[in-house]
């Protein structure tokens, strides 16, 4: 199994607070890897560091032979690491169409085909294309966020709590789409508090606690070992 992304000895500080305390993790090409953990464990910090929005104080982030740690966020996107952040970060004053077009901002090839493609994945967006993105419902906004990220043609799609604040039915729909995208070959790194749902679609999972990775196991094993899930995830 090829490793697409390898994080080694990563430390991240916010001023004097150490939010990530030396983690190693690897993402297998073509797989879904989940990162689980309670509030404040350091999951979002880890993801923001991958995207260059927060700077690591130590360690390395190797993406298919490229060191990402010193790169600017837009360069990281150019290499194919694209993130759907916590809270979605939809541009509410722009239209749905404009959000999608901005998703393909760094591309110089023709994005028309992908534009059609993502609308087939998320047909609901089709009806709202020229409305303000801020008027979408929470679920639609999450779909737009994922669709927008797909417009960048990611080689690694990173998602931070895509199920947050959504009704169970919508969560299922979104996870189904993630699974289908993965079946098409996309590598996915998924942060979730919704542990059970995430473990159902993931191949491998890490559990984070207080800035450290305390568990790394195949997702199926974790799901079957209900003690683990209870102990670490309280679910």
């Amino acid at each position: 199994m090829n490793t697409l992304l390898q994080v080694t000895g990563l430390h991240v500080h916010y001023g004097a607070i150490e939010a990530v305390k030396g983690i190693d993790l690897s993402l297998a090409q073509g797989r879904i890897t989940a990162l689980l953990g309670a509030n404040g464990a350091g999951k979002s910090t880890t993801l923001l560091t991958l995207s260059g929005l927060v700077r690591a104080s130590e360690g390395s982030i190797d993406f298919d032979g490229v060191e990402l740690r010193e790169l600017a966020p837009h360069q990281i996107v150019s290499h194919g690491v694209v993130q759907v952040p916590e809270g979605r970060e939809i541009l509410t004053t722009l239209t749905v169409r404009e959000n999608l077009l901005l998703g393909g901002y760094r591309r110089h090839d023709n994005i028309a085909a992908d534009f059609k493609n993502v609308l087939e994945w998320f047909p609901r967006l089709n009806e709202r294309l020229d409305g303000a993105a801020g008027n979408l419902s929470g679920g639609e906004q999450q779909m737009l966020a994922i669709a927008r990220a797909l417009m960048a043609q990611p080689r690694l799609l990173v998602l931070d709590e895509p199920s947050m604040g959504l009704a169970p039915l919508l969560v299922r729909e979104i996870f189904k789409i993630l699974r289908e995208l993965n079946a098409g070959g996309l590598t996915i790194f998924l942060v979730e508090q919704n542990a059970r749902q995430a473990l159902k679609i993931a191949h491998h999972a890490y559990v984070m606690e207080n800035g450290k990775l305390v568990l790394s196991a195949p997702a199926a094993d974790m799901l079957n070992n209900s003690k683990v899930v209870e102990a670490y995830l309280g679910a």
């Binding site: 929005l53 966020p73 996107v77 694209v82 952040p85 970060e89 901002y105 760094r106």
Partner: peptide, 8 residues
């Protein structure tokens, strides 16, 4: 933040 994550 959103702009940076979009590759701007």
């Amino acid at each position: 933040k959103a702009a940076a994550l979009l590759g701007i």
